[in-house]
Amino acid sequence: MRVERWDGARVRDRAGELAALLADTVASGASVGFLAPLGHAEAVAWWRERADATEAGHFAVWAAVDPADRVTGTVGLAFPGKPNSRHRAELVKLMVHRSARGRGLGRRLLTAAEDAAVAGGITLLHLDTETGSPAEGLYRSAGWTVAGTIPDYAAAPAGGLRPTTLYYKRLGG
């Protein structure tokens, strides 16, 4: 599998595949901002908005593709637009298709985003993830620090409220 940074045009062109990955992630129970069942049109619309944000320089997307050029994972960085926050970014939508999990792809995507952030002068990353999710083990093993937990922060795909843990990571020494 290869991990590539995609521009807005490529995100837009492959929004259907990215939407299928997002729907698979939600269907597997991951809390990534959507409720189940996630419709294809809603998922495509979300990715098309990310394509616009990527073209505007407010978002960056990395996609993992298998040897058959199928999308198997993604990660994004959201860049704040305020002058006092240009040193940081939010890591968002680290997703790996169920068929590709357990092979280190999540770590490769995370590393790609972190390395690009360093290269772009970002010194602080932050994220939120469902407390107790498998993603927490990845973030902790990759050197992310827990900032705190918020109870009943977001609804899980099935609808019940779940706590969210906030993480951060300082970059570049």
Rank of each mutant, 00 (worst) to 15 (best):
102 G>V: 00
80 P>N: 04
37 P>E: 04
82 K>S: 00
108 R>K: 14
71 V>P: 13
169 K>L: 01
138 L>T: 05
100 A>I: 07
22 L>R: 07
39 G>S: 07
164 T>Q: 01
46 W>E: 15
84 N>V: 00
103 R>Y: 00
153 Y>N: 10
137 G>P: 06
113 A>P: 05
136 E>T: 02
28 S>F: 07
34 F>H: 13
33 G>C: 08
145 T>G: 02
62 W>G: 07
44 V>P: 06
122 I>P: 11
99 S>A: 12
50 R>Y: 10
6 W>M: 04
93 K>E: 02
28 S>N: 07
118 V>H: 00
18 L>F: 10
171 L>A: 00
79 F>E: 02
114 E>L: 04
155 A>C: 15
39 G>K: 08
28 S>W: 04
96 V>Q: 02
1 M>K: 02
165 T>C: 09
130 E>P: 07
131 T>P: 13
112 A>D: 01
164 T>F: 07
115 D>R: 15
139 Y>V: 02
61 V>D: 09
137 G>H: 09
130 E>H: 11
81 G>K: 01
135 A>W: 06
69 D>V: 02
147 A>G: 09
164 T>M: 02
51 A>T: 15
101 R>P: 00
22 L>M: 13
124 L>V: 11
116 A>M: 06
148 G>K: 07
75 V>Y: 03
152 D>Q: 15
